[in-house]
Simulated assay, not measured.
Amino acid sequence: MHPSAMHQNLNPYLDKLAQGQINPCRSTLQIHGRVLEPEDADTPISLLDMHRWDLTPEQRIPLTTRDREFVLVPQFGAFTIQVDGGTIQLERPNGPFDLYPGGGSNASALYLPIRCQAQISGEGELVAFSCPADRPGLPRLITTPETDSWSIGAAFWRHDRTDILLPGPISQNLTLRELYLPAGHWADLPPATHDQVAYEETEQGEALVETNHEAIQYHRCRMAGPEIDPFVFATQNIMLGERLRRSYLVHDGDAVAIPGGAYPTAACPFTDHIVIRAMATPIGEPPVPIARDLEIYDFLRLMEPFILGVNDPSLKPQVSRANLRAFCKLHDFGDLEASVLVGTLIEQGFDIVGG
């Protein structure tokens, strides 16, 4: 596998992030309005922005999209959006955790194209993400039956992903996903770089070229409140290639601006966790980054069929050492990879039997 090349957007912020000179995290729960601004020199993104509103019934929020496309995502409550002469109802009455675990996402969203006028009213919490665009379109309500959800990973890196908005027939450059992490689980393992199907020449040979993409991750914890926030958190990591550049403890309502690379997240052991992820690429570049696992970590992906197979409830919770040795030999696992596999199986409640 070729080493991944750093995309250009990460360059201006890399050293400042690594040295702690820029903090990409924002606590949003006391903010009404714009949360993250690409014009801010201390915000390590240049495309995406984020708004958050706590609405009361008497409030009216005007919104003009100009040369940006928006997606509005209710967190809790019900809202009326008047846009271009029409009226759209948007709601999430019981909050984002209502159907989890096991029941899937209850997410909905409203896409607003460039050059439209809207007015927002209602009661509850509403967030919005936007990025530059130049393609006209129509407002579009996206409800749960239109979203795609599936389980990803196995063991401690198993999580649910729901694609709410993908570039194509609706948006031009804007992607919106929701990730659900059971307590103590990770998302985005193995770490993956987002790249185009293209290469550039380097002194070491060909390298994959990452898209000039960026992301905002909005974190929600089921257990939340000022009295428990110090103990309920997630860990947001920002990586470049195979190197971890920075880790941040994030709490319910925190937003993190991420200038590309890989960004795995770990949930707190005490509570489950949701990440609302917005992604964007510049106008004219491929709009949907392709995720490719980093080779040094891809043994985790190879372990998944084995772990999922032994988790079949019709099988006894035992794994023979002979089968483990055969599996490790098949995939050329060394001592490190084998120990991770064995430890994971034990943590999942399986006995390792035989000589």
Score class of each variant (00 low, 15 high):
Ala215Cys: 12
Thr87Gly: 04
Ser108Val: 00
Ile283Gly: 01
Lys316Pro: 08
Leu315Lys: 15
Arg34Pro: 01
Lys16Ile: 01
Ala338Phe: 02
Asn9Lys: 11
Pro226Tyr: 08
Asn11Ser: 10
Asp332Trp: 00
Ile164His: 00
Pro139Cys: 12
Met303Glu: 04
Ile164Met: 02
Pro182Lys: 07
Phe270Gly: 02
Asp49Trp: 00
Glu69Ser: 03
Thr202Gln: 04
Cys25Met: 15
Val209Asp: 01
Phe70Trp: 12
Met239Arg: 09
Ala291His: 13
Ile307Asn: 09
Arg292Gly: 12
His213Gln: 10
Val342Glu: 08
Glu295Val: 10
Asp42Leu: 11
Cys221Glu: 04
Gly85Lys: 07
Glu347Met: 07
Gly261Phe: 02
Glu178Arg: 09
Pro190Glu: 11
Glu214Arg: 11
Arg34Lys: 15
Pro269Leu: 06
His219Pro: 00
Gly102Thr: 07
Asn173Lys: 10
Arg325Leu: 13
Gly205Val: 14
Arg140Lys: 14
Tyr199Pro: 00
Phe299Gln: 05
Tyr199Leu: 13
Glu125His: 07
Pro136Thr: 05
Pro191Phe: 11
Gln117Arg: 12
Pro190Met: 07
Ile258Leu: 14
Pro190Ala: 11
Ile164Ala: 00
Gly354Leu: 14
Asp335Lys: 07
Pro57Lys: 04
Met1Arg: 10
Arg161His: 02
Gly260Val: 01
Ser27Tyr: 15
Asp298Phe: 03
Asp98Glu: 15
Ile283Asn: 01
Val127Asp: 05
Met50Phe: 00
Met239Ala: 09
Ser27Ile: 03
Gln8Tyr: 11
Leu47Tyr: 05
Ala338Leu: 03
Pro24Lys: 09
Asp252Cys: 08
